[in-house]
Simulated assay, not measured.
Amino acid sequence: MKTLVLFYSTYGHLWKMAEAVAEGARQVEGNEVVVKRVRETLPAELLDKIHATEAQKAFAHVPIATPEELEQYDAIIFGTPTRYGNVASQMQAYLDATGGLWARGALVGKVGGAFVGTATQHGGQETTIRSFHTELFHHGFVVVGLPYAWQGQNGHETVTGGTPYGASTITGGQGERQPSENELEGARFQGRHTAEIARKLAPVAQPA
């Protein structure tokens, strides 16, 4: 079985969440887990202006995924920042390039889900994940969220991300807040849970 954790990140928060999702997915025996990113679409001068160039060097080694390779995986877990309560344009551009896969039904029956990051506690985490789910449904994915079996989203002692639709993190208005251990644990749970569902749905190999 193969799982892809595919993310876009401006400052590295979603990369850290992606690594945690992958860590959880690797806990499922026999699961080959790959972490990749989508291509940056902002011009270099704008990345410099918003102080993202230096931050992106930390995950520049992560390979860039092509839309065509999605059909190689049994499970795909997508990570994106929120932009005005919706999917970031970089990730949307990637998804918009999957029309050929949609036309062939190449992703029907695959298992998928999404995780996000927002600047503020109520900055559109759930709307973004739900919007992402709509796109996955159009491709025929079996969509998996982050069930309340993960107890980390039940507490209220501290500010934290985490929704029943998928893992999430809060970055702060200037990107000053890094994913907390609770948020990373939610990401690990989602990765493991999604891979476990994919394992259950995987066809049983027939003897030769």
Results as ranks from 00 to 15, higher is better:
residue 104 R to M: 06
residue 139 H to A: 10
residue 143 V to H: 09
residue 75 A to L: 05
residue 111 V to C: 07
residue 115 F to S: 12
residue 10 T to I: 13
residue 47 L to M: 15
residue 90 Q to H: 07
residue 169 T to W: 04
residue 127 T to W: 00
residue 176 E to Y: 05
residue 124 G to H: 06
residue 203 P to S: 14
residue 42 L to S: 14
residue 186 G to V: 15
residue 118 T to Q: 11
residue 52 A to L: 03
residue 145 G to V: 14
residue 11 Y to T: 12
residue 86 N to W: 03
residue 143 V to A: 14
residue 122 H to C: 05
residue 161 G to P: 00
residue 122 H to R: 09
residue 169 T to V: 15
residue 19 E to P: 02
residue 72 Q to T: 03
residue 182 N to R: 11
residue 97 A to W: 00
residue 88 A to W: 05
residue 189 F to P: 04
residue 138 H to L: 08
residue 193 H to A: 08
residue 61 H to F: 08
residue 28 V to N: 09
residue 194 T to V: 11
residue 135 E to D: 12
residue 176 E to T: 02
residue 147 P to D: 04
residue 98 T to H: 02
residue 69 E to P: 08
residue 88 A to N: 11
residue 16 K to R: 13
residue 83 R to N: 11
residue 94 Y to Q: 05
residue 136 L to S: 04
residue 92 Q to W: 01
residue 127 T to Y: 02
residue 199 R to N: 09
residue 172 G to I: 15
residue 59 F to M: 06
residue 93 A to F: 03
residue 66 T to K: 10
residue 161 G to M: 10
residue 140 G to A: 13
residue 163 T to D: 14
residue 6 L to D: 15
residue 66 T to H: 03
residue 29 E to W: 02
residue 29 E to K: 07
residue 199 R to L: 10
residue 195 A to K: 00
residue 168 S to K: 12
residue 185 E to P: 01
residue 18 A to G: 08
residue 33 V to L: 11
residue 158 T to P: 01
residue 25 A to P: 09
residue 20 A to F: 09
residue 44 A to P: 10
residue 29 E to C: 02
residue 172 G to D: 07
residue 123 G to P: 05
residue 55 A to D: 08
residue 124 G to K: 01
residue 56 Q to D: 09
residue 206 Q to R: 13
residue 207 P to Q: 04
residue 64 I to F: 02
